[in-house]
């Protein structure tokens, strides 16, 4: 590992920072498919970190471990000062309410209207006070993503980009402290992609949320990334700002920026 490029452990800008997510020595394999091997990752408050990596390198697996959908084989993942691997039931639900997750395939509920899709996480997480103004909140979030008119439509009636934006709205509606984006801009036209990127930035600034973003879209990465972690061979291979990695001389890192 001596070929590693220079790593700046903390972002240059707004420090001193509190750590909201720390994964250390995470191992995860499916049978003989060793996906994560000794993966380390930190996320600070207010920071947008992009995870970059080849398809199938285990990016989605990692953020699923972060939200507790998958259990790592080894290692610890501390989210908002709680070790998610040891949480169960209600405690886990409470933590999950503070962590948003945008699924790669949107995961909108086919059998529900847009409104019900957005209400679902609100109704399910027993968050006091949120229940009462759910109607106006749904309206507001939909307006934020520019799709107020789709409120009574079914997901099947929406285009891919619209679905992505509804999924984003559903992630944002609970006002999470950390948001995990799994490829938020894939399959979108450049204009919409930029809008989504801007939306992500705006949300981050407005509510001081932190975000982990998985993306292959260089425009998006350039726009939102405070820091980039390159996942390669199950490890955090490189770590730095966009400019730092772009100028890296490492062969593997260079492949991603050509």
């Amino acid at each position: 590992m001596d070929t590693l490029p220079a790593i700046t452990p903390a972002p240059a800008a707004n420090s001193p920072q509190s750590l909201v997510l720390e994964a250390s020595h995470v191992y995860k394999s499916f049978g003989s498919n060793h996906v994560l091997m000794d993966f380390n990752f930190q996320l600070y408050k207010g920071e947008n970190v992009v995870i970059l990596g080849k398809s199938g390198s285990g990016k989605s697996v990692f953020i699923k471990c972060v939200i507790g959908l998958l259990q790592p084989d080894k290692g610890s993942i501390v989210v908002l000062e709680q070790d998610i691997t040891s949480l169960r039931n209600e405690a886990l639900d409470h933590l999950r309410a503070k962590v948003g997750f945008l699924f790669q395939s949107n995961a909108l509920y086919d059998s529900m209207t847009v409104r019900e899709n957005l209400e679902f996480p609100m109704r399910r997480h027993w968050l006091a006070g949120q229940q009462r103004n759910s109607e106006s909140l749904v309206q507001e979030v939909l307006e934020n993503v520019g799709l107020a008119h789709t409120i009574n439509m079914m997901p099947a009636e929406l285009s891919g980009g619209m679905r992505k934006r509804i999924a984003l709205a559903r992630t944002l509606i609970l006002n999470p402290e950390i948001i995990l984006y799994d490829e938020p801009t894939t399959g979108l036209d450049p204009i919409t992609a930029r809008e989504i990127g801007n939306l992500m930035l705006e949300m981050g600034r407005k509510y001081n949320t932190s975000a982990v973003i998985i993306s292959h879209d260089m425009n998006c990465i350039k726009l939102v990334a405070d820091r980039i972690v390159l996942l390669y061979d199950g490890k955090a291979y490189a770590n730095g700002t966009y400019e730092e990695l772009r100028r890296s001389q490492d062969n593997i890192v260079k492949q991603f920026f050509e």
Binding site: K64, I67, G68, L69, D93, R96, A97, V99, F101, F103, Q104, S105, N106, A107, L108, Y109, D110, S111, F120, P121, R124, H125, W126
Partner: peptide, 19 residues
């Protein structure tokens, strides 16, 4: 229904929505 919910991660989405 459950099969398509499974492959499009809707079941995972439910789980992270406190359900």
């Amino acid at each position: 229904e459950l099969g398509s919910m499974k492959v499009t991660e809707q079941i995972d989405a439910m789980e992270v929505s406190g359900t």
